[in-house]
Amino acid sequence: MRVAFQLNGKPVETEVEPGMNVLEFLRSLGVFSVKHGCDHGECGSCTVLVDDKPQNACLMLMGTLDGERIETLEGLNARRRMELMQAAFLDEGAIQCGYCTPAMLLALESLLRANPKPDEAAIREVFSGIYCRCTGYVKPMVAAKKVALGEVDG
């Protein structure tokens, strides 16, 4: 079937297998920041923003994408706020293997769009869908709080 959607600000119109999942599709386009981790949506490594909200690309079928606005880290890397978040993650040692980092950054970006001054509970909640096996979430929480408090030196 034919779907038209927006990917990182650019219109995409393409013929797709409706049952193909969005994770496979994005990676086939070379959008590699979106990762495969679990096949079932639990791990959140494949997080993308859909109309500003974090969702799991592996749980979205291409046939449902029509009219949606999809964002990945590739489209946000040059944005000022993303650079500040990345700086905070780097400075606070919030990245270990880095496999879940794009997902965490997108989730945090989505939170900040809705709520520029989130509290700790809100940050923990937005990380709830993203598994990390390296950090115990301790330093990502520290980095995110730093961003929320506007304490990042860019």
Partner: peptide, 20 residues
């Protein structure tokens, strides 16, 4: 459908997303 997507084992010919 979110559950369906996780299964990945059904060949889908036509998809009507109810959510819309």
């Amino acid at each position: 459908g979110t559950y369906l997507a996780a299964e990945r084992d059904s060949e889908i010919i036509r998809l009507i997303p109810l959510k819309a």
